[in-house]
Nucleic acid binder design. Structure first.
Length: 594
RNA sequence: GGGGGCGUAGCUCAAUUGGUUAGAGUCCCAGACUGUCGAUCUGGUUGUUGCGGGUUCGAGUCCCGUCGCUCCCGCCA
């Protein structure tokens, strides 16, 4: 007989009755009746009830056993009597009567309990992550992650993609987030950087003629955490394709994403093709470039209605180049005054100058700003927003970016508070036509608004002839339920267009050569048109698992301060190590030694 | 770097808007119990109320500072 087990804890059924078996697992729960002891033995596969009678030498030791001790039990599989069957357990029709029992690893009392939900602070859970990972919910999430990743691999290779590995020790990239640096021993004073993404490598693989690349790629960025952003490192399904248009990329990605979501979720999933929303439209209609399409509210621009209005507050904003946006909400006219007051207060707390509104009720229009508006203006607004009895129209007026942000925030809040968010559904969309350039609000100079390697729509001609701020790129995001899953782009594979684009952003050709020399020289030696995308694996798994915190789908996440409390990272190193690396540490004055 | 929330027993939480000896569940310890399945029953231990200062006759509660956790802003080509 195998020294540790013949079966796993989720395996035994009625047909095994009478068999001599050996199980190994953790003591999940213990029920001590004095002359009879039940142990629910748990492993990765399930739970099996073990019954222990007092005529065995190990009976007393088992009474004293703490939860989560590891034991090896040998005994006969016994059928349970009908009244003692546990229907909530797949193994519930049988139990194992222990004849032999070895305490393989006795556990001390636990810092938090495994067999109850929600026990333990995040801090404790991270410090004892191996215990937390034994719990059903987290254990299941990590399994789901594995299954999602292998499904992604299967789907990608099915589409003719080749999986690659790219360097982890590479060079610091001049754009983007802060890098994690690794000092070089061989080259004093020089550093490797961990890749923020394998961006240049995947493009170089296209130049190398591999045609279709993918990688479950680790990405490292030294940026602060959020609930949906783990600090330090995360994984992307990194994708790049040659000789493709934006639509070719969409078709592949839609198939893979839809397939994975449909495979692993019971929720309704939008079928391809996903909606495509130009960036400019999204900013007006939803007030954000990652709209949650489950919320049935669409914001409208009504600036023109107020161009000649007697309502000074709005007219003057429009005269100065600002906008008026209207948020129609159906059927809430009967809400109490306090509802509107609180919403106005909220709007002000997020930076709005105010929150005007009109209420369509009992065949009339009411509201604080009614007296400033002409009948013609009211008619226009009603028509534009499709107002009927019971509806309310909120107004926000400011510069376009500020009004968008406030309206987007209000739209999301109204969706939540009024319980308007569509249930049990994944709503996908593409946000397309991102602007190529934007004005730096501080310097008022033109800068890249996203990826400088994206191809501007219209190519060289557009770069030379159009206002840079009106140029859009073949740059796109895929968004699901308000979560940005990924950015991607058709790349700029032409050195001339790239020099021109960088020139508009204020870089000389020399600077471009110095900073992106590898890529530029590659593009001078035969580069195919290519493009790609990189959906976040952690975020996909988070959505599929129904979690709102990304740490719930990562086996060993760092805390918000980018520390691993279990391993003690980041940690101190020896003087010798520092000497070898030619590093002298200068700790800031206000020092907190961990 | 900034803002909000939280911090009470090993763990999860309570404690009348400043008022007696800070409680409950769970864990843990001891005992009882032959069919439980979150076993049950009896008894018991567990506290620098994060830390430091202040106001007050009196502080878990109010004020200031500080530390930790968390959510958000900045940041994330």
């Amino acid at each position: 007989m195998h020294p540790y087990r013949t079966h796993n804890c989720g395996q035994l059924r009625e047909q095994d009755v009478g068999t001599e078996v050996r199980l190994g697992g953790w003591v999940f729960r213990k029920r001590d009746h004095g002359q009879l002891l039940f142990i629910d033995l748990r492993d990765h596969y399930g739970v099996t009830q073990v019954v222990i009678y007092p005529d065995h030498s190990f009976f007393e030791a088992c009474q004293k056993l703490h939860s989560e001790s590891v034991i090896i039990v040998t005994g006969k599989v016994v059928a349970r009597t009908p009244d003692t069957v546990n229907p909530s357990l797949p193994t519930g029709t049988v139990e194992v009567a222990a004849d032999e029992l070895i305490i393989e690893s006795a556990a001390e009392p636990l810092p938090f309990q495994i067999n109850v939900d929600g026990d333990g602070t995040e801090d404790m859970r991270l410090r004892y992550r191996f215990l937390d990972l034994r719990r059903e919910a987290l254990h299941r999430n990590i399994l789901l992650r594995s299954q999602v990743i292998s499904s992604l691999r299967r789907r990608m290779t099915g589409h003719g993609f080749t999986e690659f590995q790219t360097p982890i020790l590479t060079s610091s990239s001049p754009e983007g987030a802060r890098d994690y640096l690794v000092p070089s021993r061989v080259h004093p004073g020089r550093f490797y950087a961990l890749p923020q993404a394998p961006q240049q490598f995947k493009q170089l693989l296209m130049v190398a003629g591999f045609d279709r690349y993918f990688q479950i790629a680790p990405c490292f960025r030294d940026e602060d955490a959020r609930a949906d952003r783990s600090p330090g490192e995360f994984y992307q399904l990194d994708v790049e394709m040659s000789f493709v248009t934006q639509d070719d990329v969409f078709v592949v990605v839609e198939d893979v994403i839809y397939g994975v979501f449909a495979e692993f979720s019971k929720l309704t999933v939008d079928k391809p093709p996903f909606r495509r929303i130009p960036y400019a439209e999204a900013m007006v209609k939803y007030g954000t470039d990652k709209p949650d399409l489950r919320i049935p509210i669409e914001i409208q621009d009504v600036s023109d209605v107020f161009k000649a209005s007697k309502f000074n507050a709005f007219r003057t904003v429009v005269e100065k180049g600002g906008v008026v946006r209207a948020i129609p909400v159906r059927g809430i006219a009967a809400k109490p005054r306090s509802f509107f007051d609180k919403l106005v207060e909220y709007a002000q707390s997020i930076g709005s100058k105010g929150l005007a509104y009109l209420v369509w009720e009992s065949g009339a229009i009411k509201g604080p700003i009614l007296k400033f508006l002409s009948p013609g203006e009211l008619t226009q607004l009603a028509q534009r927003a499709g107002m009927v009895d019971g509806d309310v129209l909120f107004f926000v007026s400011d510069t376009a970016p500020v009004a968008s942000r406030i309206c987007g925030d209000l739209r999301a809040k109204l969706g939540r508070d009024l319980d308007l968010i569509e249930k049990d559904v994944f709503r996908f969309c593409w946000i397309v036509d991102f602007p190529m350039f934007e004005l730096d609000p501080e310097t008022q100079s033109v800068t890249f608004s996203h990826n400088p390697f994206s191809m501007p729509q219209g190519g060289m001609k557009a770069l030379c002839e159009k206002n840079p701020l009106e140029l859009v790129a073949y740059q796109y995001d895929i968004v699901c339920n308000g979560v940005e899953l990924s950015s991607g782009a058709i790349r700029n594979h032409s050195p001339e267009i790239m020099y021109k684009a960088f020139e508009i952003a204020g870089y000389t050709a020399d600077e471009v050569d110095r900073r992106f020399g590898g890529m530029i020289s590659a593009f001078k030696l035969g580069a195919p048109p290519h493009g790609g995308i990189a959906p976040g694996v952690d975020r996909m798994v988070m959505l599929l698992a129904g979690e709102s915190n990304i740490r719930e789908v990562i086996a060993f996440p760092m805390n918000q301060k980018a520390q691993d409390l279990m391993m003690g990272a980041p940690g101190n190193v020896t003087e010798k190590q520092l000497r070898e690396l030619h590093i002298k540490v200068v700790v800031p004055e206000k020092k907190d030694a961990p």
